[in-house]
């Protein structure tokens, strides 16, 4: 718990420092050069106050932190709504996306990794490994653009962006609409996530297949299928689960880029908007929420180890 508080503190300090030293002038960025020139001194002074331009950064940070501890995350300067509300809406949109991507990449990556690692150097292994390496070195935004071009522009089977159809009332948006809009971004995120999980699982699988206990299982006449089922799966699943929960951070990071490409109004896109528009309360809010998720993922990974691995679960109580 203390660790988490410390983490949140340093993450918010870092984020705040970055925004403070950013060369973006909030007035120019949000009002526009032309409009700013046409304004009176009074108006400019009012705006400066709204964006907190004149106040020293340290003072501003502690003002924010004080409110935050009281449970008030402040008002978003851009959306003119409480930060909690903005984040709430965006988070729901993003969670969809990230949850799908996270599960897909985890399951597909694990299966591919296992298949690949059963026999190192086999044709299947080389294909899967080659594919993973290519994908792992492909930028997510580029992949997003390619998919967008193929499925939305050329084939026209999926929407080109946003999370709901254009020109439809909020009440008229169906679940099917939402799913349709989430498919491309989710697939992009999954594909990039798969490569990482596959390569790690493969590595671990090769290690297991070369272990003494697999050799002995072979000597005892167990078939490859039985060896994978009886020994390999349980030994690979453990590190894979840890990796899976630790990979939440990557999904978060990837979603920022992917949401931008697909104009998907999620947390990632909100973060970009907040950063470019100097919406400090919103940016800090998003940063803290993301940090909580990533921290939570890693925490779950650690705790799971204790629950699943008998050497920790039962070894601890015996010692």
């Amino acid at each position: 718990m203390i660790r988490m508080l410390l983490l949140l503190f340093f993450v918010s300090v870092a984020a705040f420092t970055l925004v403070s030293v950013s060369p973006i002038d909030p007035l120019q960025a949000n009002v526009g050069q032309a409009a700013l020139g046409a304004m009176s001194q009074e108006q400019i002074a009012k705006l400066s106050e709204y964006w907190g331009v004149g106040i020293p950064p340290v003072e501003r940070f502690f003002a924010w932190a004080g409110d935050f501890f009281r449970g008030d995350m402040g008002m978003s300067l851009l959306y003119r709504q409480p930060v909690t509300k903005v984040i709430g809406v965006k988070l729901v949109n993003s969670l969809w996306l990230m949850a799908i991507a996270w599960m897909l990449s985890g399951i597909v990556g694990f299966i591919l990794g296992i298949l690949s690692g059963i026999r190192e150097g086999s044709l299947l292994d080389r294909i899967i490994k080659g594919y993973s390496l290519v994908i792992a070195s492909t930028p997510a935004f580029w992949l997003a653009l390619v998919l967008l071009m193929v499925f939305a522009v050329w084939l026209k089977v999926l929407p080109i962006g946003l999370s709901v159809p254009i020109g439809v009332e909020a009440s008229g948006v169906t679940i099917a609409d939402r799913i349709q809009h989430a498919i491309l971004p989710a697939i992009t995120l999954s594909i990039t996530g798969v490569a990482n999980i596959t390569l790690h699982t493969r590595e671990k699988m090769i290690e297991v297949m070369e272990s003494d206990y697999v050799l002995f299982a072979k000597a005892r006449g167990e078939s490859t299928y039985r060896i994978v089922k009886n020994h390999a799966l349980r030994n690979v699943l453990l590190p894979a689960l840890t990796l899976q929960f630790a990979s939440i951070s990557e999904i978060f990071g990837g979603s920022v880029l992917v949401e931008q490409v697909f104009s998907y109004p999620g947390l990632g896109q909100a973060a970009v908007t907040a950063g470019l528009g100097s919406d400090v309360p919103l940016l800090l809010g998003i940063t803290v929420i993301s940090a909580v998720f990533v921290f939570g993922g890693n925490l779950i990974a650690n705790l799971l180890y204790g629950v699943i691995d008998p050497r920790i679960r039962r070894g601890g109580s015996r010692a």
Binding site: D212, L215, A219, R220, G221, R311
Partner: peptide
Amino acid sequence: MLRGNEIVLVPQSIAFLDPLM
């Protein structure tokens, strides 16, 4: 066909056993 049944190996240590089974 025969290994594990008629021809058996007794390994050196429990490192040859699956640690999670």
